[in-house]
């Protein structure tokens, strides 16, 4: 019992964390090369060489940082990503944490991510990192609302806040068809909360790396791994909430999850490379004026459809 309830979930979460972060790095590299970036060397090896370089590099200090918070923030972000990964159901029984309110717990992971990202930028005690931190807070609050509405939408047909129930409610029809607005909106949220690609406003090029601009060495490695793992956790939630999770013919449940998560990751990483960075002001306006009303429509749609049945 201890084995099943304590050891297995930890192994699953750790394996997905490491393997997922690695595959994000490989996929991003392959997509960049396909889009014309000059990169030599083996894409399978490049995440490892980069990781090794960050491990041997010195972890620098800035002048008078909030040292504990600064070192803790990447680890906390990694912990949040691991919490997110623990919620992903791989099959009906293989779930690390099958909480009755796992959808809400994912919402709190998103909310606490805001805190951790702010802490990362604030505690470095450097202007550009601080600007990145402020920016993420302003934007993060707008992603949260959209995410909540979209996730309530998928909880309605399942009549449950449990992700396994959400998956099982898609036996007949996947939510991506049943609620066509949901997945696109949720993908935007995903780019935002993992600050990736066009919505990478916290660690952006105009801030020379933003909240991570002053970090080097092992803490930077942890931060990079945590960002990639958060993207994986997000894709797991998106696959469960909209793409029918483990459901599917021929393959076994966990394999289907891997396939669907990789598909979501590929879309996100591709978007991250082909679209320029969105201006923060435009992003906030778009979130509140366009996407939030759309999320409302999605929720009403889901509600009406749930009443119909």
């Amino acid at each position: 019992m201890i084995l099943n309830e304590m050891v297995l979930p930890i192994i699953v979460v750790l394996a997905v964390l490491v393997g997922g972060a690695y595959s994000v790095a490989v996929m991003d590299r392959v997509i960049a090369t396909r889009l014309g970036a000059p990169r030599a060397g083996n894409p399978w090896l490049s995440p490892l060489t980069r990781g090794a370089w960050l491990l041997v590099q010195q972890a620098n200090v800035t002048e008078a940082p909030d040292g504990r918070a600064w070192r803790l923030a990447p680890a906390l972000y990694l912990a949040l990503a691991a919490t997110g990964l623990a919620l992903v159901p791989w099959s009906e029984t293989l779930v690390a944490t099958d909480l009755a309110t796992s959808v809400v717990l994912w919402g709190s992971v998103e909310a606490l991510a805001t805190v951790v990202i702010f802490l990362h930028g604030w505690s470095a005690n450097a202007p550009l990192a601080l600007i990145g931190a402020y920016r993420y807070v302003a934007l993060g609050l707008s992603y949260l609302l959209i995410s909540m509405f979209v996730l309530i939408g998928v909880a309605l047909p399942a009549e449950s806040l449990q992700l396994t129930q959400v998956v099982m409610s898609q036996e007949g029809l996947w939510n991506v068809v049943r609620q066509p607005l949901g997945l696109p909106l949720f993908l935007v949220v995903g780019l935002g909360m993992t600050f990736w690609g066009p919505l990478n406003l916290a660690d952006s090029t105009d801030l020379a790396g933003g909240t991570a601009s002053e970090v080097s060495g092992p803490p930077r490695l942890v931060w990079d791994v945590a960002r990639a793992a958060m993207l994986v956790a997000f894709s797991g939630i998106a696959a469960s909430a909209f793409l029918g999770g483990w459901l599917g013919p021929w393959l076994s449940g966990p394999l289907w999850m891997v396939v669907k998560m990789l598909a979501v990751l590929a879309v996100l990483l591709w978007l991250g490379r082909v679209v320029p960075r969105v201006a923060p002001e435009r992003c906030v306006t778009g979130m509140w004026v366009v996407l939030l009303p759309l999320a409302f429509v999605d929720l009403i749609w889901a509600g009406v459809a749930a009443l119909w049945q």
Partner: peptide, 14 residues
């Protein structure tokens, strides 16, 4: 318990 996390996460950030 979970509502506490996300409510307070946002509230304390603000």
């Amino acid at each position: 318990g979970v509502a506490m996390f996300f409510m307070m996460g946002v509230e304390m950030m603000v």
